[in-house]
């Protein structure tokens, strides 16, 4: 067996080398980014000229980054929570009920994924200005909720489809109220799907740039702030805040792997 595995390993050495090279090339810019953030000097060079954490401290001295980070976190939390509730409700209706327009509703709920971001952002800008709404905050919340909703709907639908309704009916027949049956039986079963959906939704709201940039006249988000900073400034502060975001992302990814397994995700 192990001889066979070794033989197959040898036979596919070309594929393995090419693939690892691709993965390395993909990682390389992020390695450079981390290196740049650790520079002691003011230039964005790699390898760093001396090591220091001064640019990390600088992030917190800059009001722009701090306020943008706070706003991005609030926006992503709020839109994810809303999209999860909407996704669970709509997902239950779509999986459990037969009603006219069911497929249309599912397609419509998934459609924000296929409309180009620049079109979504511009449509919201035009609608706000047509309605003479001067604040962009509500519009931004609604837009982010719509943009992340496909992830919650899809994952809730797929975890509900695999779950047999007879379990919940058994709980009902044993005297549980519908709400209680849902909370004690259905919810625990779809929880991993909801967790994954929440991570996807949160990340895609947090990282959204192209649609969001149309609505930032009141508050900006972190990607907008970083984009503006790297276009005008030339020091490693943006690399420092980016590195912090990547570290948090990596932790989230590992948590996702612990909880549902990335292999299961990749196969989905």
């Amino acid at each position: 067996m192990s001889a066979g595995a070794a033989a197959s390993g040898r036979r596919h050495a070309g594929v393995a080398i090419a693939s690892l090279l691709v993965v390395l090339v993909l990682c390389f810019p992020l390695i450079v980014l981390v290196g740049v953030s650790l520079n002691a000097g003011p230039r964005q060079v790699f390898p760093p000229e001396g090591l220091s954490l001064r640019w990390y401290l600088n992030v917190f001295d800059r009001d722009g980054f701090r306020r943008a980070l706070q706003f991005s976190l609030a926006l992503a939390t709020l839109s994810t929570a809303t999209a999860l509730v909407v996704g669970v409700l709509a997902g239950i209706a779509i999986v459990r009920h037969r009603f006219p327009g069911r497929d249309v509703l599912l397609t419509a709920l998934m459609s924000p994924l296929v409309v180009p971001q620049v079109v979504v952002g511009m449509a919201f800008l035009m609608a706000l200005s047509a309605l003479r709404i001067h604040s962009s905050l509500l519009g931004m919340f609604v837009m982010h909720t719509i943009l992340v909703m496909p992830y919650t709907v899809r994952l809730v639908v797929s975890s509900l489809t695999r779950f047999r309704i007879s379990l919940e009916e058994a709980a009902r027949s044993l005297g549980a109220s519908p709400a209680r049956a849902f909370r004690l039986v259905t919810l625990p079963i779809i929880r991993p799907g909801m967790f994954a959906a929440g991570v996807f939704a949160f990340v895609s709201s947090f990282e959204n740039f192209t649609a969001t940039q149309f609505l930032v006249w009141e508050r900006t988000t972190l990607p907008i702030e970083i984009y503006g900073y790297v276009q005008t400034e030339n020091d490693p502060t943006a690399a420092a805040i980016s590195t912090m975001v990547i570290i948090v992302t990596a932790v989230l990814t590992l948590a996702l792997n612990r909880y549902i397994g990335v292999d299961a995700f990749a196969r989905r």
């Binding site: 993965v23 993909l26 990682c27 810019p29 992020l30 980014l33 991570v199 990340v203 947090f206 990282e207 740039f209 972190l222 990607p223 970083i226 984009y227 790297v230 943006a238 690399a239 980016s242 975001v245 990547i246 992302t249 990596a250 989230l252 990814t253 590992l254 996702l256 792997n257 990335v262 292999d263 995700f265 990749a266």
Partner: peptide
Amino acid sequence: SIVLLVQFFTSFVIRTY
């Protein structure tokens, strides 16, 4: 998978930068 997922989840602005 984990390397790709971290990329997948990291903001485009950051990866492009």
